[in-house]
């Protein structure tokens, strides 16, 4: 990883192996109000050039960008890690908003279960008895 100054700009070389493109995009986006940002790619590294909009230390800006890149990288890695849990929570939230959806999903699940049980010849008769006793299940 390299930080070099070019007078009015700071150039950062961030290895692809360490930083994903999404992380670079996200960190760059966070800096759009403070700097003009240019991205490039060379020799397995993302080249980020920051031109500060206001006079100040370009070196400090470069280091702040690195912090932001770590922050965004961490965010994306946590997002990936908890993807399944998040999906489950969102599904639950939608189900709880409309009970009809949950009911329908349960009925579908029961139907699928019964079809599976019917495939077993030993259980077929039992399943038929259940169907006869419960008109809702067909």
């Amino acid at each position: 990883m390299e930080i070099t100054g070019e007078g009015e700009a700071v150039v950062l070389a961030l290895p692809e192996a360490t930083y994903s493109l999404n992380t670079i995009y996200a960190a760059s986006y966070a800096f759009l109000d403070k700097a003009y940002v240019h991205l490039d790619k060379k020799d397995g590294s993302f080249i980020v050039t920051l031109y500060p909009k206001k006079a100040g230390s370009v070196d400090v800006m470069g280091k702040a960008f690195l912090d932001e890149a770590i922050n965004q990288g961490h965010y994306f890695s946590q997002l990936e890690k908890h993807q399944e849990t998040t999906k489950l929570l969102v599904e639950r939230a939608f189900f709880s908003a409309d009970r009809g959806i949950m009911q329908k999903a349960e009925e579908e699940e029961i139907k699928e279960l019964i079809s599976e049980l019917e495939k077993d010849p030993e259980l077929k008769e039992l399943v038929q008895d259940i169907k006869n006793d419960s008109p809702k299940i067909q």
């Binding site: 995009y25 760059s28 986006y29 759009l32 003009y36 991205l39």
Partner: peptide, 12 residues
């Protein structure tokens, strides 16, 4: 320069 930022925002 504004254009460069505009494009980056769109890409993001």
């Amino acid at each position: 320069r504004e254009f460069a930022n505009y494009v980056l925002a769109a890409v993001r």
